[in-house]
Design a protein around this nucleic acid. Structure first.
Length: 328
DNA sequence: ATGGTTTTTACTGCGTC
DNA sequence: GACGCGGTAAAAACCAT
């Protein structure tokens, strides 16, 4: 059977509004300066201008069959919630219903009601029987809570859940808090998905301190061989740009500044968050946007001094490399 | 532990509205 | 005078050794 969803080969242009709604994925093409757009049905990121496909790792979760009539639709349809790692039983286990009635909707007798109440109790106990399951249940709840607080999308929660499961399997929890490992998993997942949150931000929504989180994260990342690439400052740009309420042009310029500096190897050793913040600020000086150092500092949690130091360096490098960009 | 680097804190001076 | 910006010194945090 041929999966029909892959049949179309033409590159589809997404309407402008479509791209606006997912700012986390909006970025600039590596080849030209076109906007990278996500196309839902093809499951890939491609450049609007040159059509370069950036990423196509998404899995097509659509049905592998086609239905031509209403009848076929209802007959071939398979039901059930999708399997997920964010629930401790992956959403697979069943539960005794809470309604005190039988399959036909008739009320149960008092005696039967009591019986089912006892069954429910035991059912719950068995489903979360051993300590690992209970551990997972709590941890995944925490991960979900933190992810919500950090505005991280579902796929990242899935990844975080998987990382946590692996940590649990490898017995990495010894002497470490559920909270800490959960937060580490989330931090790692966010970075892996190129939508990083800073250690500060993650620590803020967790119940552990920054240093503990950093230590735990290191440990988990090493033991599980997560192999996460060093933080890229440009990954912070979309979020900072929108939080600072600056134009897309500013964001593009900021990205450009960072790229030029990166070519000169002027970025290593400096904190990515600080660089991103500085790049945004620096860019506003070359555009119509007005942004004060104080505001930039507030939004990004980077000190004004750091922004000052970095942004001057960035502008210097950019002007050296590209003197004809001098304007205003 | 140690030393080197980076970031933060705190304070001060300058120009402008 | 408040504000935005810039600079400095010293403390704190971070990292590799």
């Amino acid at each position: 059977m041929i999966p029909p969803n892959t049949a179309s080969t033409s590159i589809r242009r997404q309407p402008e509004s479509e791209a606006e709604t997912s700012p986390t994925h909006r970025s600039t093409c590596v080849e030209c300066d076109g906007t990278v757009i996500y196309s839902e049905d093809k499951g890939e990121y491609h450049c609007d201008a040159c059509g370069l496909v950036l990423e196509e790792s998404n899995i097509d979760r659509g049905p592998e069959w086609r239905a031509f009539t209403e009848r076929e639709t209802s007959q071939k349809s398979r039901v059930g919630a999708p399997i997920t790692h964010t629930l401790h039983d992956k959403g697979l286990s069943t539960m005794i219903g809470w309604r005190n009635e039988d399959t036909y909707g008739n009320a149960l007798s008092k005696r039967q009601q009591q019986k089912f109440q006892r069954l429910r109790t035991w059912d719950e106990r068995f489903r979360t029987r051993d300590s690992k399951e209970r551990n997972l249940k709590q941890a995944l709840g925490e991960i979900d809570r933190m992810a919500s607080a950090l505005d991280l999308p579902t796929p990242i929660r899935e990844t975080a859940s998987v990382i946590y499961r692996r940590a649990l399997e490898k017995d990495l929890l010894r002497g470490r808090s559920i909270e800490g490992v959960g937060a580490s998993a989330l931090y790692a997942a966010a970075r892996q998905a190129n939508t990083p949150r800073s250690l500060d931000e993650v620590a803020a929504v967790s119940r552990i301190g920054k240093s503990k989180l950093a230590r735990t994260y290191r440990y988990v990342a090493r033991e599980l061989a997560l192999g996460i690439a060093p933080d890229d400052p440009t990954d912070y740009l979309p979020r900072f740009a929108s939080d600072c309420e600056v134009s897309v042009e500013t964001e593009t310029r900021a990205r450009h500044l960072l790229e030029v500096a990166a070519e000169q190897d002027a970025l290593s050793g400096k904190s990515p968050v600080g660089l991103a913040a500085a790049a945004i600020y620096a860019a506003t000086r070359r555009t119509e946007d007005s942004l004060t150092q104080a505001d930039a500092s507030e939004v990004t949690n980077v000190s004004k001094v750091t922004i000052r130091n970095r942004y001057q360096e960035l502008l210097e490098i950019a002007d050296d490399a590209d003197p004809n960009e001098l304007e205003s």
